[in-house]
């Protein structure tokens, strides 16, 4: 029993680390440009299917190469989408609402495009690492350990990028005071596009990592998006550290819910949790604004 609890906990941690990546991406875009991207989950789906395509096209494919191909692809994809949808809408008066509606349309479009291109049957990605390790009586999959390591690298890398590089600093600056950034002469639109691109890469990577655990489905992205949102709501919109803590709180709780009540209770759990957060802590745990 105890060992079972430990392994549920360990699984919760690996899942949480992928949720953290996707939630940080969502939060980053919201923090910088106040844009809420409803197609975000579909971006994760696109990333996962691109990975699957790479593996099915080339026999020699491996994850380092797949990641190297996916990052620039997702980045350019994100920049193109930013240029096509949020940017022209930002001139409108009600751009917050219209962007949400338009990205929701994009999300449905992408999910169905994936359905058309890849068919309705579930697909699986190869594992990142085979076999298991035993720590005491607890067995852990290598795959999940690699996921955790990669997720930590991604989060640490992103935080260093935001903290240390000039462009990362500019992104934080726009998030903190957009008027100030404008006065300083920053190219706000470039920074919006860059942020969107980076968040798209994060979504793609999350889709890839989750794809090594769960099967790929064309509409699987919606669940990822919803979870990312609840994490952001709990962590406080725009706060990266908040998203990180919230991802682990929710991810680990989710794996216990899944184990005790069954996977069908996962979505109601997220809904009830979100309602509870919004009633008791309307601005999230570490809410900024």
């Amino acid at each position: 029993m105890f060992n079972q609890l430990i392994s549920i906990f360990a699984n919760g941690i690996t899942i949480s680390s992928t949720y953290a990546i996707v939630a940080i991406g969502l939060s980053l875009v919201y923090g910088v440009s106040k844009t809420f991207n409803y197609a975000y989950g579909s971006f994760a789906t696109v990333g996962a299917y691109i990975t699957w395509l790479l593996f099915s096209m080339f026999d020699w494919m491996n994850y380092p190469v797949a990641i190297m191909v996916m990052i620039p692809f997702m980045f350019l994809f994100g920049i193109a989408i930013e240029w096509l949808i949020p940017r022209p809408l930002r001139k409108n008066e009600n751009w917050e609402i219209t962007t949400v509606v338009a990205t929701l349309g994009l999300g449905v479009l992408l999910a169905n495009l994936v359905l058309f291109l890849f068919g309705p049957y579930t697909k699986a990605l190869p594992e990142l690492g085979g076999g298991t390790v035993s720590i005491g009586h607890v067995q852990l999959d290598w795959n999940r350990i690699v996921i955790l390591i990669l997720a930590i690298l991604i989060v640490v890398g992103l935080k260093l990028f935001l903290k240390k590089t000039y462009i990362g600093m500019s992104m934080r600056a726009v998030a903190q005071d957009i008027e100030g950034a404008r006065v300083v002469g920053m190219k706000i639109n470039h920074i919006f596009a860059l942020t969107f691109g980076i968040s798209t890469v994060l979504a793609g990577l999350c889709g890839m990592l989750l794809g090594t655990i769960y099967f790929l489905t064309p509409s699987g992205g919606w669940e990822i998006f919803i979870k990312a949102f609840v994490i952001v709501a709990l962590g406080g919109a725009g706060s990266i550290d908040g998203a990180l803590y919230a991802a682990f709180i929710l991810g680990i709780t989710e794996s216990f819910v899944q184990f005790t009540l069954g996977p069908i209770w996962v979505m109601p759990f997220w809904f009830i949790f979100l309602m509870a957060v919004l009633i008791f802590k309307p601005r999230g745990l570490l809410g900024i604004r």
């Binding site: 000039y166 600093m169 500019s170 934080r172 600056a173 903190q176 100030g180 006065v183 300083v184």
Partner: peptide
């Protein structure tokens, strides 16, 4: 002023 409140003086100046 419109400074970037969560950043250091030096970061603000560099930006």
């Amino acid at each position: 002023r419109r400074l970037f409140p969560q950043m250091t003086i030096k970061e603000n100046l560099l930006l």
